[in-house]
């Protein structure tokens, strides 16, 4: 994946990850000391993610605040729930969520963020960049895509540059993530 030198900015790819894998993630790190260096959430299957792409069902939304309002939303995939937020820095995503009436299939591109809850859990929420209403067919496509990406990560685990950190932070049982993939695929079987 060589990029021409002229390109100063390489867009971070949007990783495909199921809700239950993202829920297990809790380790975040920054590459480089630069203020602008991106922050990554380490996925338990051994890859970093600065951006993710998810498709699921918007089950709930809640508006917070008056002047600097933001929306919190729950988006469910076959394996669990993503916590999605959109504030005034993401006006388009916020307007989309405001417009949508749950339940509705949505495609969300956003940045995963880790924060700690009062009882010591680490929660990953997704700060949405864009939110679009989609249909079930796109959801099914995403489940296939995400299943494949997860299996690829599991297969390539030993060769991943992030494997060492993943082993240290999560010591993941890769078979259980295979099971998650299997269950997600089984859930969309017509």
């Amino acid at each position: 994946m060589t990029q021409p030198r002229t390109q100063s900015y390489i867009r971070e790819p949007a990783k495909r990850v199921f809700a239950s894998e993202l829920r297990d993630a809790r380790y975040s790190f920054r590459e480089g000391d630069d203020e602008k260096s991106p922050t990554y959430i380490l996925l338990p299957t051994g890859e970093r993610s600065n951006r993710i792409f998810i498709v699921g069902s918007l089950t709930q939304k809640e508006k917070r605040g008056e002047q600097h309002s933001m929306y919190l939303a729950r988006v469910a995939d076959p394996t669990g729930t993503f916590f999605v937020s959109a504030g005034s820095y993401q006006p388009e995503a916020m307007q989309q969520i405001a417009k949508l009436e749950p339940p509705a299939f949505v495609a969300v591109v956003g940045k995963p963020n880790a924060y700690e809850t009062p009882d010591g859990n680490v929660l990953i929420s997704v700060r949405a960049e864009t939110v679009t209403a989609v249909d079930r067919e796109i959801r099914d496509l995403w489940v296939l895509d995400c299943a494949e990406a997860t299996l690829d990560r599991i297969d390539a685990f030993e060769n991943s540059p992030d494997a060492e950190a993943a082993r240290r932070e999560y010591n993941p049982n890769l078979e259980s993530y295979k099971k998650i993939v299997y269950d997600a695929l089984a859930a969309i079987r017509q």
Binding site: G56, R74, A76, D77, P78, G80, P103, R136, I188
Partner: peptide
Amino acid sequence: EFGVPPAEA
């Protein structure tokens, strides 16, 4: 219709 896991529903 929306493929939501039963617990979330």
